[in-house]
Nucleic acid binder design. Structure first.
Length: 344
DNA sequence: AATACGGGGAC
DNA sequence: GTCCCAGTATT
């Protein structure tokens, strides 16, 4: 395979892609700017996240935090609030840390060099390449899932994308087709992978590089990419107590390990004396990528002010009400539970 | 080198 | 149900 490619010229593939991108680029809010801050934020928001899912989050985030300084000066919990429901919450924590990093280490000016960008929290090789190429003329391919799919099909290459060397391997393949305008090339690959070269039912008839695509000519497009690693999901049971009185309820903040980093949740235990206040329980099932959650939530309607105050004092819980809960970030299933309790 | 980390949508 | 998505940090 390597021998076949050696000496061959695949540059016209990249140029064809650029031409296609000129007329078919998706109209997205971050496509009209080269502001590294906005490109950075959009890259983080859309990691492992479809455009349709994250678009509102991106727009709201930019509106509230329009620049590095505003973000750096904000409270971490408010950043998490703007990430509510988006998932992979360490992204929000890291994005906030990186903003403060830029203020302290780069005097508030987003670094232009790939190696400097790479030092920022939450930014890895993909994002560093994307920001540097789109905003600063960097020449690194932004190798993501789209690159794996498009390139493995283009070359009918069965290199296992679950192999940890896949990033390096497909970076080298990308170099074969990459034109001088790397920023547009990277974005063109994203749009092609999203709209044409899709995982299921790719639109090969409309693909601008189908004449060059080996998998297409072999009619084996859906054989690629090859991915051997299987994801195993495990079951996990959680218990929560929705302890409330006079429209207020108790919460606490999670640690930054395990799931739902630094998000707010309900107490997971109550003292025996409080059990008589339990009125009902509800079990919610919730699917995470590697976990099937079964969450049992007990409704605890506390009618005694004494019990209420004692419980709070002994456990350092925070008190909030429905209005206040809108100002905190909860895991999706708990967010849904709160919204439903609002209707009662 | 392998694993954990959310949530939603396509099929 | 299964797989995937503009990946990164951690071990």
């Amino acid at each position: 395979m390597e021998n076949i490619r050696t000496g061959s010229d695949f540059l016209h593939v990249g140029n064809r892609l650029l031409e296609w991108y000129k007329n078919n680029a998706r109209d997205l809010p971050f496509r009209q700017t080269k502001d590294p801050y906005k490109i950075w934020i959009c890259e983080i928001v859309f990691q492992q996240t479809r455009i349709s899912q994250g678009l509102n989050h991106y727009n709201n985030f930019i509106k509230r935090f329009p620049d590095v300084k505003t973000l750096a000066e904000a409270d971490e919990n408010e950043v998490l609030l703007y990430w509510k429901g988006l998932g992979y919450y360490s992204r929000a924590i890291n994005i906030h840390k990186a903003a403060r990093q830029i203020m302290e280490e780069y005097q508030g000016v987003f670094p232009a060099q790939y190696q400097d960008i790479l030092t920022l929290k939450g930014i890895g090789k993909y994002t560093a390449a994307a920001v540097s190429s789109i905003c600063f003329g960097g020449k690194m391919p932004a190798v993501d899932g789209n690159f794996y799919r498009v390139l493995s099909r283009l070359f009918a290459d069965d290199f296992d994308i679950s192999n940890s060397r896949a990033f390096t391997y497909f970076s080298e393949l990308a170099a074969l087709v990459m034109p001088d305008n790397v920023g547009d090339f990277n974005q063109a690959m994203m749009d092609l992978g999203s709209e044409i070269c899709k995982p299921k039912n790719p639109l090969c008839g409309e693909c601008p590089i189908n004449e060059d695509c080996l998998a297409f000519s072999l009619q084996k497009v859906t054989n690629y990419p090859v991915k051997t690693k299987k994801v195993k999901t495990e079951d996990l049971a959680l218990t929560y107590y929705f302890v409330h009185r006079n429209g207020q309820f108790l919460i606490r903040q999670r640690k930054d390990d395990f799931i739902w980093k630094k998000l707010f949740e309900f107490p997971s235990a109550i003292p025996e004396e409080m059990e008589p206040f339990i009125t009902q329980s509800k079990t919610i099932t919730h699917k995470l990528t590697h976990k099937n959650l079964s969450i049992e939530i007990f409704n605890v309607a506390v009618s005694s002010e004494k019990e209420w105050n004692t419980f709070i004092a002994e456990n350092q819980y925070l008190i909030t009400d429905i209005q206040g809960s809108h100002e905190k970030s909860f895991p999706k299933p708990l967010e849904n539970y709160i919204q439903n309790s609002l209707k009662d």
